[in-house]
């Protein structure tokens, strides 16, 4: 620890205090509001189990939306990320593609959902379109970074044979980065399920529609049923993706020993 570090840490803490005042973040409000949590928790425990069937079907709709959004989003982002990779293209190709992706990324999924509700109307289709856009913007960046991290040695060795770019991609880039790409796809699917769960807030389909409506009318017990189903689903998806990861990713990278 030296003087300079102390000064930087001091400045950061001062910054947090000043900014909290600016945005009206007052810890006293939190303390005063604590009893409300108690009320909410009490009502949440009064779970209305008759709603589990509805919750199940709306969760299924959510998963399907997330699945379509992830698959289509990845199908669009993969070619874009190949065009955005600096080790495969010249700057006249990758600069505009990167700019496009950065523009897509500026919108969170909920804003895309509002936009698509306006365009295609209320319902799950707007949600699917929102997930596609979010997936493209988010995953394409991760993918072109993984593609750029492809080992230069096989790229050079195979490039020196004089193969076409498509062949280089198919035989070197994709196999070398496959485990990273798969890992990212699993991650975004997991993430998409969680964010599709809230798109109902703006009328774009899925389980969030019920959650927001019950919360609006202070029926926490009913909302709790839907939230429990979301929680269970996220846990199951997590469990499945760990399995897929172990089978296809860890194995292909060799070396990592899983402690059990």
């Amino acid at each position: 620890m030296n003087q300079k570090n102390n000064l930087i840490i001091g400045l950061i803490i001062a910054g947090v205090v000043v900014m909290s005042v600016n945005v009206d973040a007052d810890p006293r409000d939190f303390a005063e509001g604590l009893p409300n949590i108690g009320i909410m928790l009490k009502e949440i425990t009064e779970v209305d189990s008759s709603l589990f069937v509805t919750a199940f079907w709306s969760m299924l709709e959510t998963i399907q939306m997330a699945f379509i959004g992830t698959v289509v989003g990845v199908a669009i982002s993969l070619p874009l990320s190949l065009l955005a990779a600096r080790n495969l293209n010249n700057k006249f190709v990758y600069v505009p593609i990167r700019a496009l992706l950065a523009a897509i990324r500026t919108f969170p999924s909920i804003l895309w959902a509002i936009l698509f509700v306006i365009i295609v109307g209320l319902g799950p289709f707007a949600g699917v379109l929102a997930i596609i856009m979010y997936t493209v913007g988010f995953i394409a960046k991760l993918q072109y970074e993984a593609i750029e991290a492809t080992d230069a040695d096989p790229m050079d060795a195979v490039g020196a044979i004089g193969v076409s770019k498509i062949q280089l991609i198919r035989f070197v880039v994709l196999p070398e980065s496959a485990s990273h790409l798969l890992s990212q796809i699993l991650y975004i699917f997991d993430y998409n399920i969680r964010q599709t769960s809230i798109l109902g807030l703006v009328g774009a389909g899925g389980i969030g529609f019920y959650i927001i409506n019950y919360i609006k009318f202070f029926e926490y017990g009913k909302a709790a049923v839907f939230m429990l189903v979301v929680l269970a689903t996220v846990l199951i998806i997590e469990w499945v993706s760990v399995r897929v990861r172990d089978k296809y990713i860890v194995k292909s990278q060799r070396g990592m020993q899983i402690k059990s």
Partner: peptide, 20 residues
């Protein structure tokens, strides 16, 4: 290009695709 097809280049680190 046609000459590149006819040169078998084996670099020091071989440049193989490990996962293939």
């Amino acid at each position: 290009k046609s000459m590149m097809h006819k040169i078998g280049y084996i670099p020091q680190n071989l440049g193989l695709i490990k996962n293939s």
